[in-house]
Amino acid sequence: MGKVIYLKDFLKNQHGTLEGKVVVGSDVRPAQAVNLAITNRSLQVVTDGFDESLALKISENPDDFVRDPGEYLLGQDSNGIGSFQQKFFRQSKKDDFLFQIETYLKSGQHRRVRDDIYLIADELFTNFAKSSAEDSKTMVFGIENDKDTVMIYCRDQQGALDPHIMLQSIQRCYQQGVKASIRMDSKGGAGIGSFLMYSVSTGMAIIVEPGKHSMVLLWMPRKAHHEDRVDMNKNLFVISGKGE
């Protein structure tokens, strides 16, 4: 896993598979990145100047990336902004969880990303807590910064997340529109949460090792307005292990 392929070369030759590859393209649109990830089980799409050697390093060390994603994605200088981490369980109260995040996000340094991080935290908490198999299993939610970027992640030690379901719901929103993609007759999720998170970010990573861990991670430039980030291309990493 982890060989670098240039998308324009692949599209010209249409030879081989992108599975397990780092796919490098310029101006890869958000919907296209999702389409590539759906048709190839595990791959990383990097665009708009993202360091492909970093993507390669992540693909070769997924367990270490899950353990400490900031070590890979963030610079040393946090600009004095502290990080946040909160453990939670299936039975944890979402209101208490979100209150902690709201307090943390009061910093002016987060003013342009505050509402989006709050939404991401809400969606990740709901999805991880709902899909947790046991009351005793811990999940960890975190926010970390460097001087330019804020990174938000949620991980568990269960490894039951299916990246394909997330990607398909994102793809549906791009293809049909958000309103048409909403599961109106469901008492469960609305089916658009993953799209909302992906839209407001400039990078998303879904890492799953069945029976071991799952992580959903998003990152974005802290100084970019919401409405600009929605229009930006996304780097998308999907690394799905085969389990034991």
């Binding site: 709050y118 709901t126 958000v178 909403i182 109106m184 999720g189 609305a190 658009i192």
Partner: peptide, 13 residues
């Protein structure tokens, strides 16, 4: 104060 994906669905309905 906030609206999430399920809230969007409830709003639309």
């Amino acid at each position: 104060q906030s609206i999430n994906s399920v809230g969007i669905r409830s709003w639309l309905i």
